[in-house]
Write a protein that binds this DNA or RNA. Structure first.
Length: 109
DNA sequence: TCACTGACAAGGG
DNA sequence: ACCCTTGCCAGTG
């Protein structure tokens, strides 16, 4: 493994801090890291699945849609994981996303 | 080294 | 309110 932490390892660290039953979006993580952009986060999470040690299902896009579900083992896996944490997913979108939204900036408070 | 890609976000029409 | 365009920047080939 590379001794030097890469950009996406920082993303992993933030994603692991997302409380169960909560979700966040790509922009919030990018803004918290103040590095790269929302696209980098999504791309980093794609690698995170490969490690299998990051709750990537708690990260959705700004619309609350499960945009990354196709990258999971099965397209429905992401929805199942979110529902298992008490959230409701309708039409590949988190219902009341606004209510379940959590921002990493909360760590600063 | 250059060009293209990508689990997005925000603004404008 | 919806659709399209632009900006974003690390990685990979």
């Amino acid at each position: 493994m590379a001794p030097e932490p890469t950009y996406y390892e920082n993303v992993y660290d933030v994603v692991r801090l997302i409380p169960p039953g909560r979700v966040t979006n790509y922009g919030a993580i990018a803004d918290f890291l103040a590095l790269g952009s929302a696209r980098m986060v999504g791309w980093a999470l794609n690698q995170a699945i490969h490690t299998g040690d990051v709750p990537a299902h708690r990260v959705v896009n700004r619309k609350g849609e499960l945009s990354g579900r196709t990258h999971f083992a099965t397209p429905t896996r992401m929805q199942e994981l979110l529902e298992a944490e008490g959230m409701v997913v309708k039409d590949d979108t988190v219902v009341d996303f606004d209510r379940y939204f959590w921002s990493p900036t909360a760590l600063l408070e």
